Amino acid sequence: MKKLETPIATSSKIIFDDSDDEHESMSEDEGEIERELEDVTFEELQRARSDGSDMVYKKPNSDKKAGRVNKNRPMEISSKKPVSRFREVIQVPKKVVRDPRFESLCGELNVDGFKKRYNFIYENTLPAEKQELKKRMKKVKDPEAVNELKDQISRIDKELKSAAPKRTENDILAEHKKKEREAAKKGKQPYYLKKSDIRKQKLIEKYNELKESGKLEAFIEKKRKKNAAKDQKYMPYRRPSEQGDE
C-alpha cells in the first residue's frame, strides 16, 4: 500500500530580494538628487526647463560664502532662518527712570511751602495774562482769532475760580493751626476743625468779601431767584384736563 503524503504548509508570502534592493537604490538616488537641488537657484531651474534639459549641475563648494569675511563686517545669516523681532543690535546703557514722588533722594514734599512758592502764578501771572489777552482781543478783527482768545480767557477764569476756594480753605486751616499752637504752649488741648466748621468759616469769609466789594445785595438777589426757581419746580400744579373739566 502506498502511504499518503501529508501536505506541507507553505507560506504565501514571497520575498523579492531584487525589488527591495531596487527600492533602496531609488531612495538613495532621490536623496542624492534632493541634496544636489538644495543649492540650485530658482533661476537655474527655470533655465533648465526652458532649454528642455533636465540636467542641473551642482555648484562647487568654492562658491559658498563664508559666515564673516572680516571681523568688522556684519554676520551673514541665511534668509531661510527667521530673524527674531526683538534683538539687541547695539548695546545701549539702560536708562533708570526715577519718580521724584517716591524717591527718598528728592526729599519730602512740603505742601505749604510749595503753595507759597508758586502762589505768584494765581496772584500775578494769570491775571496779567488775562489782561494781555483782553487787549489783544480789542485789536484783532478775525472772528476765529477772537474766539480763540475768548477760549483762553475763559480757561484762565476757570483756573482762578477753582483755585480761590482752595486758597481760602488753606488760609483758614493755617490760621487755625497757628492759634492752636499758641494754645498748646499754654497747656490747652488742641481742637481740630471739622468739615462743617470749615464750610461755615468759608461762608463768613465770602460774606465779608462781598460786603467790602459792594456786591452783597446782587449776590443775595441772585441766590433768592435761584432758590425760587427750585421751589417752583417742585410745587404742585393742576393738569390741563382738570382745568377743562371745571
Rank of each mutant, 00 (worst) to 15 (best):
K2C: 02
K2D: 11
K3N: 06
I8W: 04
T10Q: 02
T10C: 09
D17G: 12
D21C: 10
E22A: 15
E28N: 14
D29C: 03
G31K: 13
E32F: 10
E32M: 12
I33M: 10
E34D: 15
E38Y: 01
V40Y: 10
F42I: 15
Q46E: 12
A48W: 01
R49Q: 11
S50C: 03
G52T: 06
D54P: 06
D54Q: 02
K59R: 12
P60A: 12
N61D: 13
V69G: 13
N70A: 04
N70G: 05
P74S: 08
S78Y: 02
K80V: 05
K80D: 14
P82R: 08
R85G: 11
Q91N: 09
K94W: 11
V96D: 06
V96R: 05
V97L: 02
R98F: 01
F102V: 15
C106S: 15
G107K: 03
G107Y: 08
L109T: 09
F114T: 08
K116D: 09
F120L: 06
Y122V: 07
E123G: 04
P127R: 02
E129L: 01
E129R: 09
E132A: 10
K135H: 01
V140T: 15
K141A: 14
A145G: 07
E148R: 13
E148G: 01
L149G: 03
D151S: 13
Q152F: 00
S154H: 05
E159G: 03
E159R: 08
R167S: 05
E169H: 04
L173Q: 08
E175S: 13
H176D: 00
H176C: 12
K177Q: 14
K179Y: 03
K179C: 01
E182I: 13
A183Y: 04
A183E: 14
Q189L: 06
P190M: 07
Y191N: 12
K194C: 04
K194S: 14
K194V: 00
D197F: 01
I198H: 03
I198T: 02
I198G: 00
L203N: 08
L203A: 10
L203V: 06
K206F: 10
K206C: 01
K206E: 06
Y207D: 04
Y207C: 11
K211H: 08
E212T: 00
G214F: 02
K215I: 07
E221N: 13
K222S: 07
K223F: 05
K225W: 01
K225T: 01
A228R: 08
Q232I: 00
Q232M: 12
K233C: 01
K233A: 12
K233I: 10
M235I: 08
Y237K: 14
R239N: 15
E242I: 06
Q243G: 14
G244N: 15
E246L: 12
E246W: 02
